[in-house]
Simulated assay, not measured.
Amino acid sequence: MGEIERLVPSGIIDQWVFHLRRQRSRAQDAIWLLDQGFSIHDGRDGVALSDASERYRREHQTVIDEVNTLLELYDRINLRTSEYIAVETNKARRSTDPRI
């Protein structure tokens, strides 16, 4: 099956990137709080049943890692250094072209 080319307006892409950066910031803040001694507990009716701090730390670290990967891809595409950018087609040479 062939690949479908879809054009997404740059404004929408910018909104996604803004959202990803916000999610990464929130995850970094949560990890910082855990590093400062705060803890997160699973519980019921306001009663703590078990410490869930390590699980939350792993989940937030996963968010950070995945967002970093997506933002690196975004930057490579926008900086035109990505293998995902199609090679620009060779334009016809003109008589004023210095490569002739």
Rank of each mutant, 00 (worst) to 15 (best):
N78E: 13
E66L: 09
I13C: 09
I77S: 03
Q15G: 06
D65P: 00
A30H: 04
R26P: 01
I12W: 05
D42W: 08
A27F: 01
V17A: 09
N78T: 12
T62A: 15
E59V: 10
W32V: 04
F38P: 02
D35G: 15
N78R: 15
H60K: 08
R22T: 11
I64G: 01
D75N: 14
I77N: 04
Y56C: 02
R57E: 02
S39I: 01
A27K: 05
T62G: 13
R21A: 10
E54K: 06
L34C: 01
S50W: 00
Y74T: 04
N78Q: 15
Q61A: 14
V47I: 15
H60Y: 07
I40R: 09
A52R: 14
W16S: 14
G37R: 01
R76Q: 15
H60Q: 02
D35R: 14
N68V: 06
L49K: 12
D14M: 13
D51K: 05
L33E: 07
D42I: 06
R24P: 01
G46L: 01
N68Q: 08
D35S: 15
E72I: 11
R55F: 07
N78H: 15
Y74D: 14
L33G: 00
G46Y: 04
A27I: 03
A27P: 00
T62F: 10
D42S: 11
I12G: 00
S25P: 00
L70V: 13
L73I: 14
S53C: 11
R44M: 07
D75E: 13
V17M: 05
D29M: 13
H19Q: 10
Q61V: 04
A48T: 00
R44K: 11
D14S: 14
S53N: 07
Y74Q: 11
R76F: 13
F18K: 14
L33D: 01
E54R: 02
A52L: 08
A48R: 07
L34E: 06
A30V: 05
R55H: 07
V67I: 15
A30W: 00
Q23Y: 02
I40E: 02
A27H: 00
E59M: 11
R22N: 09
D35T: 12
R26T: 09
W16R: 15
E54D: 13
A27S: 12
F38L: 12
I77R: 06
I64R: 05
G37Y: 02
E54Y: 00
A52E: 06
N78L: 13
R24A: 08
T69F: 07
G46Q: 03
L73C: 09
I40F: 08
A27L: 02
I13D: 06
L70I: 10
R24D: 03
F18I: 04
L70R: 12
R24N: 02
L20Q: 08
S39V: 04
